[in-house]
């Protein structure tokens, strides 16, 4: 291999100096390239499948609110994804807003307040919560959460209907609020794990410094939480990504109606739950499959945007704290 054209090519890669480096590169490059190619191929498929609906409706498929499926008459079909996009973002935001205090408290409770003997079993429990298949949450939401949310939501809508959040009287427990709460419960263990990991890495010396200023335990916790802010953001971004992507569990509790409403006591729909509930019969229509793939593209984009935003925030923070010039 030495001196051959392949070797010469490989050695142009930065850091490749020896035969061992070349072998390492040859071994690992295909694997990592494969992954990249799979992702690109997925994106390609989604774009290709979205083309029919986009070429017919143009950008309206993302901004329109009408969802009209007509069998045997493609010209009458019309698909607007906006209610689903709105529902995805809305339920995920609710989930993150609830998960934020929950996951921070859970992380702190496990690290600071749990006696050492219990810590192991309790953290095992939260790991188990994270590992539980989402359909289990979905069934729980369907059978327990939704019926129990109903009286609370109707009380709110009859006593606080002047708040737009509760303006609609719920007809059942299958609402945006229920989906948001369920998503919060599902994503809290993930966010908490990320936050807890960072919190436990805080050096003892920093902790001692805070205590030796005469801070009480809660004040110390507050100071230390400031130190793990980037991890809180990362954990919540993860929670958001999980919430946006969740499919079956949401479709079981959200009520599946194509509406745009500020009222969390109303039913709604998300892109993922729309795909889950409609894909089975999408084949009967001319454009619906394409519209659902276009929805998938939107989920892609939202996930990407949230991740980019989180990474950007962490970079900014690092620049600020580490003093690296931007």
């Amino acid at each position: 291999m030495n001196g051959g054209p392949l070797s010469r090519l490989l050695r142009r890669v930065r850091g490749v100096r020896s035969r061992d480096d070349e072998r390492f590169l040859l071994l690992h490059l295909p694997a990592s390239l494969t992954l990249l190619l799979v992702i690109l191929a997925m994106l390609g498929v989604f774009i290709a499948y979205s083309i029919p609906v986009i070429s017919r409706e143009g950008f309206h498929v993302f901004t329109d609110t009408t969802w009209r499926a007509v069998e045997g008459d493609p010209q009458a079909e019309w698909y607007g994804l906006l209610p689903a996009i709105y529902g995805s973002v809305y339920t995920s935001l609710i989930a993150v807003l609830i998960a934020a205090p929950l996951s921070v408290s859970l992380a702190v409770a496990l690290e600071e307040l749990t006696p050492r003997r219990l810590r192991g079993s309790l953290s095992l429990l939260t790991d188990l919560m994270a590992a539980t298949p989402t359909i289990i949450y979905g069934l729980w939401g369907l059978a327990f959460l939704a019926p129990h949310m109903y009286p609370i939501l109707s009380w709110l809508s009859s006593h606080a209907s002047w708040i737009p959040l509760f303006s609609k009287h719920p007809s059942s427990g299958y609402t945006i609020a229920t989906a948001g709460v369920l998503l919060a419960v599902m994503s809290t263990p993930f966010a908490a794990a990320v936050i807890r990991e960072a919190y436990s890495m805080i050096p003892l010396s920093i902790r001692e410094a805070a205590y030796s200023l005469g801070a009480t335990r809660l004040e110390v916790i507050r100071i230390l939480l400031g130190m793990v802010k980037p991890s809180i953001v990362a954990g919540l971004a993860l929670a958001f990504a999980r919430a946006v992507g969740e499919t079956v569990a949401v479709s079981l509790v959200i009520g599946n109606s194509m509406t745009i409403t500020p009222s969390v006591t109303d039913s709604g729909v998300t892109v993922s739950s729309l795909i889950a509930s409609q894909f089975g019969n999408a084949g009967f229509y001319h454009y619906m499959t394409s519209a659902l793939f276009a929805g998938g593209l939107v989920i892609f984009a939202i996930g990407l945007a949230v991740n980019v935003a989180a990474v950007w925030y962490m970079k900014k923070w690092e620049e600020k704290v580490m003093g690296v010039a931007p």
């Binding site: 050096p203 010396s205 920093i206 001692e208 410094a209 805070a210 205590y211 030796s212 200023l213 005469g214 801070a215 009480t216 100071i223 400031g226 130190m227 802010k229 704290v321």
Partner: peptide, 21 residues
């Protein structure tokens, strides 16, 4: 304890300012 620590503060062997402040 926090009163004791305020009246008798401590400086440690390794410099340990809070990095995020």
């Amino acid at each position: 304890p926090y009163e004791v620590r305020r009246r008798a503060t401590m400086v440690f062997q390794d410099p340990n300012p809070f990095p995020h402040m």
